[in-house]
Simulated scan of single mutants.
Amino acid sequence: MQYVAEKQTTNETDIDLSQRLEVAIEIIKEAGKMAKDAFTTMTPDKIGYKGPQDFLTETDLAVELLIRERLYTAFPEDSVYGEETGGEIKSNTWILDPIDGTANFARGIPHFCIVMAYVCDNDTKLGLIFDPIHDELFTAEKGKGSSLNGRNLQVAKTESFDEASLELGWNQRSSEENYFSALKNLCQLGANVRRSASGALALAYVAKGRTDGYVELHMNPWDCLAGLLLVKESGGVINNYTQLAEWHKGGPVFAVIPSLAEAVADKVLIEIEQYA
């Protein structure tokens, strides 16, 4: 399949973004089909490791190369920055994770997704998260809301931590001491705290209202930018990730419903955006 768009400029217009979103939806669905087909035939010999508890499969590479090729064809002036093959952050950059939740994918657990975000001058304009197993496509465009398979999203209206469900991501980029401290502090609020091993889907679930918040002490941009935009466009409270000095190297992530946001932020010591 070929996706070709007209020449783009750095300063985005609504037409530019709508066109990019339309093309990105086609691309992420094609990538999702590749990932789903590979998932059904996954065997232990296809699993590799980039480090402790850091899984890599041949599908990660194949999906990223597919997305990269399609984006370069459609938008040759845009940069692409991916988890597996790197790239550069420029004025117009697509940031992608071919398989978020690779550990789940590799072990036959149907909880993973493909992630794409479009960033213009350090501002996330588009976010897409596709769960191919459940055929759920989450999309967001800055200032225009968010959707799941075309239906508008809104975060949950939970009022009490006694009823709240939060998710806390973990990885070895932050110390165990910091992680367990954050976990203890969140549990002390009275919330149920879980971990599903796909940070991008966790953020999408906050946007959908399936959970009330997601926090991770250090997260890479390809995992979180799309989800942060989804949560913000669904009425949630986030931290201003792309305003960090070296955000392309990763940083803390915060995405919580408004009624619980300040209390959670105090417990995990993450500065959040101002909100009404």
Rank of each mutant, 00 (worst) to 15 (best):
Met1Pro: 00
Met1Ser: 13
Met1Trp: 04
Thr10Asp: 12
Thr10Arg: 06
Ile15Ser: 12
Asp16Trp: 12
Leu21Asn: 08
Val23Met: 02
Ala24Pro: 08
Ile25Trp: 00
Ile28Met: 04
Glu30Gln: 05
Glu30Gly: 08
Ala31His: 06
Ala31Pro: 05
Lys33Gln: 14
Met34Arg: 12
Lys36Gln: 09
Ala38Asn: 13
Phe39Leu: 04
Thr40Arg: 12
Met42Ser: 08
Asp45Leu: 11
Asp45Asn: 14
Ile47Leu: 12
Ile47Asp: 05
Gly51Asn: 06
Asp54Val: 11
Asp54His: 12
Asp54Gly: 03
Thr59Pro: 11
Asp60Phe: 09
Leu61Ile: 15
Glu64Phe: 06
Leu65Cys: 02
Glu69Gln: 14
Arg70Pro: 03
Leu71Ile: 15
Phe75Asp: 02
Ser79Glu: 12
Val80Met: 01
Glu83Arg: 10
Gly87Met: 10
Glu88Asn: 10
Asn92Ser: 09
Asp97Arg: 13
Pro98Arg: 07
Asp100Ser: 10
Gly101Phe: 13
Ala103Trp: 03
Asn104Ala: 08
Arg107Asn: 14
Ile114Lys: 00
Ala117Gln: 11
Val119Gln: 07
Asp121Ala: 09
Asn122Thr: 10
Lys125Tyr: 02
Ile133Ala: 01
Asp135Trp: 00
Asp135His: 08
Glu136Tyr: 09
Glu141Gln: 15
Glu141Tyr: 08
Gly143Lys: 04
Ser146Gln: 05
Ser146Thr: 02
Ser147Pro: 01
Asn149Pro: 01
Arg151Met: 12
Leu153Cys: 04
Leu153Asp: 07
Gln154Val: 13
Val155Ala: 03
Ala156Glu: 02
Ala156Ser: 15
Lys157Val: 00
Thr158Tyr: 03
Glu159Ile: 04
Glu159Cys: 01
Glu159Ser: 11
Ser160Pro: 00
Ala164Ser: 14
Arg173Glu: 10
Arg173Ala: 10
Ser175Pro: 07
Ser175Glu: 09
Glu176Thr: 10
Glu177Leu: 14
Phe180Tyr: 15
Ser181Gly: 09
Ser181Tyr: 14
Leu186Cys: 07
Cys187Gln: 15
Asn192His: 00
Val193His: 06
Ser196Leu: 12
Ala197Asp: 14
Gly199Val: 13
Leu203Asn: 11
Ala204Tyr: 12
Val206Trp: 00
Lys208Gly: 11
Lys208Thr: 10
Lys208Gln: 15
Thr211Glu: 05
Asp212Met: 04
Leu217Asp: 02
Pro221Gln: 12
Asp223Arg: 15
Asp223Tyr: 12
Leu225Thr: 11
Ala226Glu: 08
Gly235Leu: 07
Asn239Trp: 04
Tyr241Glu: 07
Glu246Asn: 14
Trp247Leu: 07
Ala255Leu: 09
Ile257Met: 01
Ile257Glu: 01
Pro258Arg: 13
Leu260Val: 10
Leu269Pro: 00
Leu269Trp: 00
Ile272Leu: 04
Ile272Lys: 02
Glu273Ile: 09
